[in-house]
């Protein structure tokens, strides 16, 4: 699991983002099966792409992320395995 890594230093997981935060996708970790990595890339979650967390509902519900002009809701099963680096606020 990538949760709990230091957000300020370098890479963290997409799941650790809070609403309003932006990041750049670095890679996918090994725990995410190849077919899901491909599907995520098909949906626009490419390494290098900027993603922002739009909603982070309470009680661990899936979060809402924005990629370009599309919003996706992901739960930790996927988002915890996408390695990202935080970007400064716009």
């Amino acid at each position: 699991m990538l949760e709990g890594t230091d957000v300020k230093n370098s890479s963290t997981s997409l799941w650790s983002l809070r609403a309003g935060e932006r990041c750049r996708i670095e890679s996918f970790d090994d725990k995410l099966a190849e077919r899901y990595r491909i599907r995520m890339m098909e949906l626009g979650f490419h390494p290098g792409e900027t993603v922002s967390c739009v909603q982070s509902p309470a009680l661990g519900a899936p979060k809402v992320y924005r990629v370009s002009n599309t919003m996706f809701s992901l739960d930790d099963e996927v988002a915890a395995h996408i390695v990202v680096s935080l970007l400064p606020h716009e």
């Binding site: 599907r39 899936p62 809402v64 919003m71 996706f72 809701s73 992901l74 739960d75 099963e77 996927v78």
Partner: peptide, 10 residues
């Protein structure tokens, strides 16, 4: 069969 993870377009 393979299951789909929760990835839902809003």
């Amino acid at each position: 069969f393979t299951d789909l993870p929760f990835v839902l377009e809003m």
